[in-house]
Design a protein around this nucleic acid. Structure first.
Lengths: 112, 112
DNA sequence: TATCTTTGTTTCATATATAAACCATAAACA
DNA sequence: TGTTTATGGTTTATATATGAAACAAAGATA
């Protein structure tokens, strides 16, 4: 059962979300698109899109990214092929790292 | 009432989420941090963090961004002050744009 | 080798995000 | 001006994401 849920967000997180929402809103208007129109294209409700544009932190990331894509806001400042390349690079990097992370020697003997 | 919810995501959206998850995972391991440790710092459950690292599209964007921030993954390739500047620029841009978007002349008289 | 830890899944109860329907205000155009 | 449309708030019912706990398997250290 989820415990009663008061999350805290760093300033950077809040500002990043706020900026992303603002970029989406600006891009939508530049394309002369209505809130309803973009919502329809993304398959979401008008209210949800309005929350996204306000930088609401509690929206599905997939929906936010989808809306951003629809209005032409690039998440990683890269096109799709570059994106795929980054994914491969990240996978390669992960392959080199240890599978699981151990912190310290299990027991500390050096108490003196 | 929400209608029964089969969303579609573009390839770019899926890959962007996948990449972000991979970057988080790689950054976490580079910092020698355990899944549980990062989950605790972010105030989320271990299972949720694992879903984020797998690029799950249905997570709160605030949580994903927060985790990314914790392990040092920059969303916009900028520091906090630059981020704030971008926000202001976006606001200024929005101030210049029309408040609401009108599509076409209301009625088309020119049917002939 | 054996032991401890991390990770990867699963199931389940519930808190909550969402869609839909309203209404009110503001903005755009004639 | 008046009319139409876009936007911004609600409110409510429900689909679903989440936290917690349990389990198994894989990895790391001695």
């Amino acid at each position: 059962m989820p415990k009663s849920i008061t999350r805290t967000y760093s300033r950077y997180t809040r500002e990043a979300c706020s900026l992303l929402g603002g970029l989406i809103r600006a891009a939508r208007k530049e394309h002369k698109l209505t809130v309803q129109e973009v919502a329809d294209r993304a398959g979401v409700s008008r209210g949800l899109l309005q929350r996204i544009e306000k930088g609401d932190l509690k929206c599905e990331i997939g929906v936010v990214f989808e809306v951003a894509t629809i209005v032409g806001v690039k998440l990683f400042d890269t096109d799709e092929s570059t994106l795929r390349k980054h994914i491969r690079q990240t996978e390669d990097k992960l392959a080199l790292l240890p599978k699981s992370v151990r912190k310290k020697p299990r027991v500390v003997h050096d108490e003196f």
